[in-house]
Design a protein around this nucleic acid. Sequence first.
DNA 1: TTTTGTGAAACGCTTCACAGCT
DNA 2: AGCTGTGAAGCGTTTCACAAAA
Lengths: 214, 214
Amino acid sequence: MGDQVSEQTTNRLSLYLRFLNELDADGVRTVSSKVLAEQFALNAALIRKDLSHFGDLGVRGVGYVVKDLRQRLRQILGLDRRLNVAIIGAGNLGFALADYPGFRQEGFRIVALFDSLPGKVGRRSRSGVLIHDSRELERVARREGITIAVIAVPAASAQMVVNTVVEAGIKAVLNFSPGALRVPPGVKLKSVDLTVSLESLSFYLASSGDGARM
Amino acid sequence: MGDQVSEQTTNRLSLYLRFLNELDADGVRTVSSKVLAEQFALNAALIRKDLSHFGDLGVRGVGYVVKDLRQRLRQILGLDRRLNVAIIGAGNLGFALADYPGFRQEGFRIVALFDSLPGKVGRRSRSGVLIHDSRELERVARREGITIAVIAVPAASAQMVVNTVVEAGIKAVLNFSPGALRVPPGVKLKSVDLTVSLESLSFYLASSGDGARM
DNA sequence: TTTTGTGAAACGCTTCACAGCT
DNA sequence: AGCTGTGAAGCGTTTCACAAAA
C-alpha cells in the first residue's frame, strides 16, 4: 500500500465509489469484485488489484463490505473534507460548470468565479456564485481556501491564467481550454479537450465505413 | 498503414493537427518530429510511429511538409467534410456546448439542440441553434444529416436518450453524463466524466501531502 | 549531416491462475 | 464452497537505437 497508483486506477476508484453510493442507498451490505466487474465491464482481478493498493479492504469468501469500502474510498479520494473550487472564466462554459449539480454532489463547492471583463465582475451565476475580478484571484483563493482551479477561458489566455493560478498557491488544475499548458512540478494539471474528443469520433466515422469514405 | 490505430494515437493526431494549423498560419514550411515532440513533451519516435500508421508522410533529412501533413491529418481525422452535430439536453451544459467556439473552428456544425421540456422547445441558443422536441430526434437527425450526438442530460435519463440516438442511426456519441452507458457494437461512445476528473485532482491533493492529510 | 521509419527492448497495465483465508 | 490478494504471464504502448534516404 502507498506505492504509486496509476491515474487509470484512481479514475476507476471514482466509478466504484459512485456505484457503492447507490448500493449503500439501496441497503446492500456486501459486494464482490465479480459484481463490480460486471457493472463496469471490467475484469474482476483488475478491481481487486485497484483496491489492494490501499490495504486489505475485502474479506475472503465474502467480498467487500459496502459501507466500509465506500467510506474508505471517500477517504482515499480525499472527499471526506471540504474541497473549494474556483472557476476562471465566466463565459458560457464557466457558468455551466459553476452550476453543474454533479460537482456539488460529491462534496465539491464552487466558491468563486473569476473574469477579467469589468461588466461581469460583481454579478452572480444562476446558483449564486459571485464573479470576482481576475486580479483578485490570489487574495480570494487564500481567503476562501481554494484548492482546485477550473480553467474555462479561451486558449489564447489560458497559459497566463494558469500561471496566476499557480502563483496563488493552487496545486490542482482542471483545464478545459484547448492546447498544451505548462505547470511546474508539484502542481497537478488535468485537461479535458473537447475538440480532441469530437475529433476522435470523427476519426471513427471516417475510418469505419460510414459511406462518405472508404 | 491501415492497421488498427489506438485511441491514444488518434487523440495525439488531433493535437498535432492543431499545432500544424498554427505553423501553417505562421508560414512555416516543414517541421521535424523533434520539434513536435518538444511542443507536446512527447518522445520524437512516438510521433513518427503515430504518423507512420498512415504511410510515409515525412521526408528523411527534412521532416514533414507542414501543408501536406496538415491536409493529410484533416483527411485521416475525417475533418475534410461537413460534420453535423446534435446536442441532446438544453440545460446549462448543453447550451454552453452549443455555443462553444472551439467546435465550429474545426468544421463541426452544431445543427440542433433537443430537449423534452415543452417550455424550451422552439427557443434558440445565443448563437441561434434551435431547440427541438426530443421526440423529433430521429426525423431531424435524418433530415439534417446528423452524424454525431452529444449527450448533456442528467444521469437518470442518459441511457434512454442514448437508445433513442442509436435508433436514429447516429453512430458516434460524446457523453457528458456520469455513469456507464451501453451502446451496441458499431456505435462509438466517448465519455467525458467531469466528476471523475475533479475527483482525480482531489486524490492528488489528498495523497501528495497538502497539509490536510499525510 | 539531418531526420525519417522501424525492428527490438523496455515498460506498464491487465488478465490469468491459484494459494490462502473465512 | 466462495472470494480475496497476488506472483507470473500476456499484451499493448512507448522508447531506444540504427539502417536508409535526402
